[in-house]
Nucleic acid binder design. Sequence first.
DNA 1: TATGAATATGACTTCATATTCATATGAATC
DNA 2: GATTCATATGAATATGAAGTCATATTCATA
Lengths: 203, 203
Amino acid sequence: MPTETFFNLPEEKRQRIIEAAIDEFSRYSFHKARVTAIADNAGIAKGSFYQYFEDKKDLYKYLMETIAKKKMSYINKDMLLNRDKYGFFQLLREVFLSGIRFAKENPRLVPIGEMLLADKELLHELYGENMDRNNDFFKQLLKYGQEKGEVDPEADLDLLAHMLSVLTYSLVDLVMEDGKIDMDDMEIYDKMLYFVENGIKKR
Amino acid sequence: MPTETFFNLPEEKRQRIIEAAIDEFSRYSFHKARVTAIADNAGIAKGSFYQYFEDKKDLYKYLMETIAKKKMSYINKDMLLNRDKYGFFQLLREVFLSGIRFAKENPRLVPIGEMLLADKELLHELYGENMDRNNDFFKQLLKYGQEKGEVDPEADLDLLAHMLSVLTYSLVDLVMEDGKIDMDDMEIYDKMLYFVENGIKKR
DNA sequence: TATGAATATGACTTCATATTCATATGAATC
DNA sequence: GATTCATATGAATATGAAGTCATATTCATA
């Protein structure tokens, strides 16, 4: 947890620090990221950094929390808007698009997530056992699809959730070129959805 | 490239060095991996290391080349054995299983690949533009499937190849627990294949 | 305006590692 | 036995960051 001092900072300054951190962690993995660079970029002294955070990991954890909240609330907003109005596969499409939209609006967060995912040790340290909140999300969604009779009732939801989450991530990755996302080419999302739909629908 | 000296070394010693390197790089990312640990583990002096390799990256590149060759020849062996004898989806199954089998026989290579995949900068440095030999492999396979009339002729092979390669990797990951692979539970592979088959077959 | 508590600072220390280099060893060749 | 050449060694040096700390500055309030 950041210190009291950090939270007492004027919004603007706190924001500058967060920005600098996002910038550094989006370029470099946790281990390669440099506290010095973050401090420099935020326009604060290195000493101040340690006034605000216990250490590099403290900041990183805080950042991850913030990002996770932001993303979840973003996607849930879209979900709540469309739930019941749509069938399962349309809903899934919304979730895909919502994920892409989030990535497009926050392109720097994508590599941060990817690099964390790759560092099993760090991942475990941060999330311990409940490492798969992302999977849970898809699992709930799939269960809903089964209840509506649209998803194969025989399907292994854990495996499917895993595959969906992996596919979403890879899609974002595919559509990103040098940190920029080209969202206008809808085709690719629908191709993937077509694949997924055929793969899991009830027959 | 390793030096002449390295290649002149007795097979046994060279192997010890490679072993030690695999061991270190499977535990730590390229950047965290320590030359000292490799030298110690191989039972050579640190100075000797620099007799054999220009630097840490030199060894790493060499290792990646070796591994890629090994894996490709492993999978191709299985492919050649079964090509023509099988239909496309059976062949795909063989490739999946072959990949899993390879991972089971060389569990330490899995995290090495994953960590490299996560380090875009390093990845780019090693492979430059042709970053997707893995995708190419699946693309060829899919093309073959289309020719045999088993794969949807409308399918976007680049996208599908990408998805297959991502799914394979994630499957290996899923089936690995603490560096050990439980291969005996065939069910999960067939579930994923069932999903994939429905997703891409010609209708 | 005076005061001290809170905040800010960056030079310095520490530490873990990569890399170099002068020197040793030992086998082959003369 | 002397000379040469390839190989081996680890102490010495370089590097690059994390984290510390004594000191300076700011700011609320008495």
